[in-house]
Design a protein around this nucleic acid. Structure first.
Lengths: 205, 205, 205, 205
DNA sequence: TATGAATGAGTGTTCATTCAT
DNA sequence: TATGAATGAACACTCATTCAT
C-alpha cells in the first residue's frame, strides 16, 4: 500500500501544478475578456474544466488568483525576455536600444493580453494593486539601470521621472499595439518607437 | 398669471435636474473610486443622498447613467475648454500650441477624475464603449483639424496615426497628471509636454 | 371670483369622473394584457395619460382599483344586458332561453376582456376575491331565479349545484369564446350552447 | 471497487436530485397559493429549506423552474395515470368510459393543486405558455384517439372541436373539484360527469 | 386637482466562498 | 485531490405608494 500511494503522491503534485497552470490560463483569458471585476471565479474554474472548490484549493481567493497570475507573468517576462531588460552596451545607438527593449515586450504583451488587462484595470483593490508592484518594479528598475548606464550623471529624481514617463508613454500606446492586426503592427510599432526615441534622445541619445 | 403658471412647471423640472446632477456627481465619484463594474447603483444613489428608485427615475439603467455622465463630460469639455480645441494660429510655435491645448485638458482631467476613470475602464460593455465615442471623436477631430492646419500636405493615414498616437501617449501619462500633488504638477506637466513636442516636432513643428 | 370658481368646480368634478373612467379603461386593458399581479399601477396611470399620484387620488390602492373596475363591469352588465338575466317566460324552449342568456354575455365578455381576466385570475388576494363577489352574485342569483321559475320543485341544494356547475362550465369555455375570431365564433358559440343545453335539459328542459 | 467508485458519484447526483425535487415541491405549493407572478423565488427556496443560490443552481430562472414543474407533472400524469389516457374498449358504455378517464385525472388534480394553478394562470409569459403545451398535447391527443375509436367517421374539424370543448368544460369545473371537501366530492364528480356525458353522448354515446 | 419626484422594501439573480462527501 | 451542492450577502432594478408643490 505504501508503494501504491508513493507514486500517486508525486503524480498528484504534478497534476496539481498542471491544474494550477490551467486555472491561471483560464484566469488570464477571462480577465482579458471581462476585466478583473466582472470575471467570476466560477467562470474561470469552468473554463479550466475544474470545479469552484478546486480553484479555492489552489488560491485563497480571487485576489490571490490575480496575484499569482501576475507573478507568473513576471516570471515569464524575466525568463523569456530577460534580454530586454538586461544591461545593454551603453554605446548602442538609441534606436537599436529601443528595438532591443521594446520588441520582446510588445511580443509579450500581444501574446499575453491578460497581462495588460490586469495592469491597466483601474477598479482594483489596494491588495491587488500591491500584487502588480513586482511587475512594475521589474520594468522600472530594469529601465532605471539601462538609463543610468547611458547617462551616469543624471540626478536620481530626473532619472525616476524619466523612467516613469517612459513606462506610461509606452503603456498609453499598448492598446494600439495589442489591438493592431499583424499587417499594421510594423507601422504602429515604428511610430511608438519614434515617440520614445524622440522623448529619450535629449537624455540618453 | 402666465409667469405664475410657468414657474411651477419649471420648478419641478428644476428639482429633477438638480437631482440628476447630484446623481451624476455621485456616479463620477464612485466610478472614479471603484471603476464601472464594481460601482453599485445603490451606492451611487446613497452617495447622492437619494434612494435607488430615484436613480432609476432619471436613468434607465447603470449603462445609461454612465452614458449620461460621459455626455455631460463632453458637454463640459466643449463648453469650458472649447478654446483648447479651437483652431489655433498656425504660426504659433509648437510649444505654445501644446500649452494652449494641454493646459485646459489637464485641468479638466484633474477636476473630473471620473472622466478618465470611465474612459480608461476596459471592462466595459460594448454599449458603454459606444457612449465613450463622442468624447473620443471630439478630441480626435479637434486635433486632426489643428494638425492639418499646420501640415496641410500630410497624407490622411499619417494624420490619423499621428492623432491617435498623440491621444494615446497623452492618455498614458494621465494617471501621473491626475495623481500628482499640486506642487509636483508643473514638473510632470512640463515633462509630458516635452514628450509630445518631441514626438510632434518633425511633423508640425 | 365665486363665479369663476363655481363653474370650474363642476368642470373639475366632471373632469374627475372622466379621469376615473380613463383610469378604469386603462386598468381594464392592462389587467387583460398582463393579469392583475403583473400589471403595475404606474403603467396603468401612464396608459391613462395620468401620473401615479392622480391614480391614487381616485383609488386608495391597486386592490380598490380592481374592485372599482369590477363594480363598473357589474353595473354595465346589469345596465346593458339586464335582459339576459331578467326572468324569462318559463315556457320558452330551453334553446331559446340559452340564446337569450348567453348571447349578450358572450358579447359582453368579448367586448370586455378585462372582465374575464380579472374573474379568472387565480393569484388574487382575499380582498380582491371579495370584490369579485358582486359579479358572481349577480350571475348566480339571476340564473337561480330563472332555473327556479322553470323547475319550481327543485331542492335548493340541487338548484345551487346546477347554477354553480352551469357557471363553471360556461366559464371554462370562455377562453375559446374570447379568443375565437369573428368567423369562428358562431360555431364555437353553438357548441357551447349545445353543451349547456345538454346539461340543463334533464332539469329544466 | 467499481461499485465503490460508482456510488459516490451517484450519491452527489442523488443529493442534487433530491434538492431539485424539494424545490419543485415548494414551487408547486407556492405557485398554487400565489400564482406564478406573485410567487417569489426566494420564498420558494425558503419553503424548500434552501437558499436562493441553491434554487438557481438547478434552475436557470423562474420560468425554467415553472417549466420543470410542468414537465414533472406531465411525467407523473403519464406514469401514474397512463390508464386514463390509454385506448379503451370502444364498446365500453360512455358513462364507464368517463369514469375511467375522469377518476384518475380528478384524483391527480386534487393531489397536485399546483398543476391546475399553473395551467390556468393567465398572466404568464409566452415561454411558460410554451411549457404548458406538452401537458395540453398529452390530454388533447389522448382524448382525440379515444373519441376517434368510438366515432371513426367523425370529420377532423369536428373531432378537434369536441376534444377542445371537452377539455375546457372539464377545466371549468376543476376549481369546484379541487375545492370540494372529501364528503362533497362524489356529488360534484357525478355532476361533472353528467355534464360531459350529456355533451358527448350525441357523438360517441 | 394634478404632477412627478421620492421612497424603500422587495424581486429575480449572481457570485465569492465554504463544506460535505 | 476534487467535486458540486450550498450559502447568503449583494446587486441591478421595480413598483405600490406618498408627498411637496
Amino acid at each position: 500500500m505504501t508503494e501504491d500511494t508513493a507514486k500517486p503522491v508525486r503524480k498528484r503534485q504534478a497534476r496539481g501544478e498542471k491544474r494550477m497552470a490551467e486555472l491561471l490560463d483560464a484566469a488570464a483569458e477571462v480577465f482579458a475578456e471581462q476585466g478583473f471585476a466582472k470575471a467570476s471565479t466560477n467562470a474561470i474554474a469552468a473554463r479550466a474544466g475544474a470545479s469552484p472548490g478546486t480553484l479555492y484549493q489552489f488560491f485563497k481567493n480571487k485576489q490571490e488568483l490575480a496575484e499569482a497570475l501576475m507573478a507568473r507573468y513576471v516570471e515569464r517576462l524575466e525568463a523569456a525576455h530577460g534580454e530586454a531588460f538586461a544591461p545593454q552596451d551603453p554605446r548602442l545607438p538609441l534606436p537599436h536600444l529601443v528595438d532591443r527593449v521594446l520588441d520582446p515586450i510588445i511580443a509579450f504583451d500581444r501574446a499575453n493580453p491578460g497581462f495588460h488587462a490586469l495592469l491597466a484595470d483601474p477598479g482594483v483593490t489596494p491588495e491587488l494593486a500591491e500584487a502588480k508592484r513586482p511587475a512594475q518594479q521589474l520594468m522600472f528598475s530594469s529601465l532605471e539601470a539601462i538609463f543610468l548606464q547611458r547617462a551616469p550623471g543624471i540626478p536620481p529624481a530626473r532619472l525616476a521621472l524619466t523612467v516613469t514617463m517612459t513606462i506610461h508613454l509606452f503603456r498609453g500606446t499598448l492598446p494600439l499595439l495589442i489591438a493592431a492586426e499583424e499587417k499594421d503592427l510594423p507601422l504602429t510599432t515604428m511610430e511608438v518607437k519614434r515617440a520614445l526615441i524622440a522623448y529619450l534622445a535629449p537624455l540618453i541619445g
